[in-house]
Design a protein around this nucleic acid. Structure first.
Lengths: 213, 213
DNA sequence: GGCTTTCGATACATCGGTGTATCGGATACG
DNA sequence: CGTATCCGATACACCGATGTATCGAAAGCC
């Protein structure tokens, strides 16, 4: 049990960071649930004493790790979305976001591990749902700014529904990527999916579809 | 190490089945990677001897378990797809398939565990990819039979691309379902997504969209 | 129904991981 | 600088799980 430290010394934050970094590596390689505390500490160049001084349990560390990285990604996505102020060019935003979301396969591995973990712990699930909600919000915001310029399919409902769809597409593509490890293909495919979802299927008046057969 | 058994006695298949059933339960509850062989055997009402007589390792059992269940689901999906012979009514097929795919949350839990497992073992990943390919094939077949009656969005490319999109949507919805555990919402949402993907966004000439704002 | 084969239970040796308690050096602070 | 505090290393006791070897009993076979 970590005592609430009176002073947050700088040594503390340093070792904490090193532990989290090592955890990311090791979790990505072997998967949470196949990693022992000892293994993790060895990877970080520490003894178990360091671990128990900083975290109560492996779950706690995993949670902290997820939170840290998720925050980082969220910030990157927000930046990618805000990049063109008025939000007229949706396809460009799609490209930028795709680039950010499918950047690091290791992160996707850890993220999925965390999903599996959250699926069995409502407490953790809540945190993950919150994070996803914030992401959706940012997306919905962006789509709202572009309304009128892109025809959203009616079946998706409002802008919020469309944001939901974007996240679903992201998750779907992630699964395939985890299996074939082809980042470029995944990016291309995600762009395609998002285009299909957010525009009205390539059937805008100014871009008539040619017969696919 | 299981000797290649000369005769497949019926006792053997029975205990094997009981082990697999118990494994499904326990894996769903605690997650693969948090289950010991001992725990599993206890749940099945066996001793560890039974396990080692039937499987070489936990991984092997997990693989067998996945294969068995996946085969079952695939058959159900194929049936749901084949139900109306000529394939004119795509929305009805979507409804039926949705029903089958999002039936059992426990299965989704185990399946996702397996995904995480496969993501780190190319051997296993191959098997999973094969299974997914077969599923896509069945879907593509169905869509092909319905071509001309439903306008596929051009951006998805051919029928095969559309099948790919269906699977991605399924995976995406699964993720959300694992977190909020709301099966009905997931089903509705998946139907909506598939409709948006497979029709041309509710903008067919015979079904004009009304302004969502 | 005997005889053989097969299967699963039991016992055993072993190992790796866990958590705690304690200690010594580093670090902050005056 | 001196000292009090903090933090991470070390040592220890303790399971719990693993895999194997062996044995008794059930099931197949004639």
């Amino acid at each position: 049990m970590p005592d609430h430290p009176k002073r947050v010394t700088r040594r503390r934050v340093a070792t904490r960071a090193r532990l989290l970094d090592a955890a990311f590596q090791v979790f990505a390689a072997k998967g949470f649930g196949h990693v022992s505390i000892e293994e993790l500490c060895e990877a970080a160049g520490f003894s178990r004493g360091a671990f128990y001084s900083n975290f109560a349990t492996l779950d706690a560390l995993f949670f902290a790790l997820y939170q840290e990285r998720a925050e980082l990604i969220a910030a990157q996505v927000a930046e990618a979305l805000a990049q063109d102020g008025t939000g007229l060019d949706v396809p460009a935003a799609v490209d930028r976001v795709t680039e950010v979301l499918l950047l690091d396969v290791d992160w996707l591995l850890v993220k999925t591990d965390f999903l599996v973990h959250a699926a069995r712990d409502p407490q953790v699930a809540r945190a993950l749902l919150d994070h996803r909600a914030r992401l959706r919000e940012a997306i919905a915001d962006r789509l709202f700014r572009a309304r009128g310029h892109t025809g959203l399919p009616a079946v998706l409902g409002d802008v919020d529904g469309a944001a939901h769809a974007v996240v679903a597409a992201y998750d779907g593509v992630t699964v395939q990527l985890l299996l074939d490890k082809d980042v470029e293909a995944a990016r291309a495919w995600l762009k395609q999916l998002l285009t299909a979802l957010l525009t009205d299927g390539g059937r805008t008046p100014d871009r008539p579809a040619h017969d696919p057969a």
